[in-house]
């Protein structure tokens, strides 16, 4: 069975406060790095899965992202899926 690897990026919606991102932006100034206008913190989730084909792999990871990895009330997600190097 083909093996796939996926990366899901979860980010806070633009309208949601991100105090940790603001604190990090402020710390960047302390490091002397100028010009950072916006800094938002999210999560990156890497996973590998077995699925019969790419469309089915995509369906499963989309379901996972939408129902568990992200809370759609406050977060958006995007994903990248490709065959795992070992299965090529």
């Amino acid at each position: 069975m083909p093996n796939y690897q996926a990366s899901v990026l979860v980010s806070l919606r633009a309208s949601v406060l991100d105090p940790a991102g603001e604190a990090t932006r402020s710390a960047a100034k302390g490091l002397g790095i100028q010009g950072i206008k916006r800094l938002r913190i999210g999560k990156s989730i890497s996973l590998e899965l077995d699925a019969p084909n790419e469309a089915e792999a995509l369906r499963r990871v989309e379901l996972l992202a939408d129902r568990l990895l992200a809370n759609p009330v406050i977060e958006d997600w995007s994903l990248d899926l490709k065959p795992a190097p070992s299965s090529l």
Partner: peptide, 17 residues
């Protein structure tokens, strides 16, 4: 209860961290 959808909205990090 918010994660379960029995109550609306979400609880997030305190503004002051």
């Amino acid at each position: 209860l918010t994660e379960l959808g029995l109550l609306p909205g979400a609880l997030t990090r305190n503004k002051g961290l």
